[in-house]
Nucleic acid binder design. Sequence first.
DNA 1: AAAATATCTTACTGAACAGTAAAGTGTTAG
DNA 2: CTAACACTTTACTGTTCAGTAAGATATTTT
Lengths: 115, 115
Amino acid sequence: MRTDPQAATDALFRILADPTRRRILDLLAERGPLNVSDLAAEFPDLVTSGISKHLMGLRAAGLVHANREGRQQIYALEVGAMRDTLTPWLKKYDRFWNQALERLRDLAENERRQK
Amino acid sequence: MRTDPQAATDALFRILADPTRRRILDLLAERGPLNVSDLAAEFPDLVTSGISKHLMGLRAAGLVHANREGRQQIYALEVGAMRDTLTPWLKKYDRFWNQALERLRDLAENERRQK
DNA sequence: AAAATATCTTACTGAACAGTAAAGTGTTAG
DNA sequence: CTAACACTTTACTGTTCAGTAAGATATTTT
């Protein structure tokens, strides 16, 4: 039962849309696995339960995973899902990644369009 | 006056969060420059002014540009802004792109953490 | 000049969602 | 055993935002 790639893309971009969630991913990338309190300490304007909720979202999207250690939960980055979804998505645009080629293509298209 | 990279990232992910806008980008990538009516025809459930509003958003984010041609506006992909913002963002995670390396790192971190 | 066409703007509405407070669960320390 | 700690869940609230309808603007056709 593998999930629809369209649905996976929707879910991924939806979860990446929030700056706090992206910052959490950044922190886990920079500093390695962290518990909730350490993460929450990086967001003085937010309450801990808010961070927890974001972590639940990231977990549901498969972007992080947690290991209980005593009374703490150690969250770590899990980039597999991101890679699997983002790679094919980016591939659709890599033909355009080179701006020069894109401009040539646009010129050709406009040419053609003018009968 | 170049814009804050953090703000640029926020704006990009915000704009990419909507499935309709991503689909518009896809259509422009697959079929080349298109006018508003042709794009709108791909979204039978949406009204034309809705598509126009999405196009304004994409334009403001620098992801598309338009050339007037008579009474039509020909929209085309403009991936420069996306590349400039997405490349450094992805770079933060490419160290983790390889899942095997990630697992090793996690093991090491958990080891260290257990004093 | 008026009508038709193509697109954009504005004002509105409903739904999704981030953030909070408070209560709930699980684990360890006294 | 119970108090403290670490985190999660639930219910609520305000804001943001996609989608719509109606009107505005610009261009072309008749």
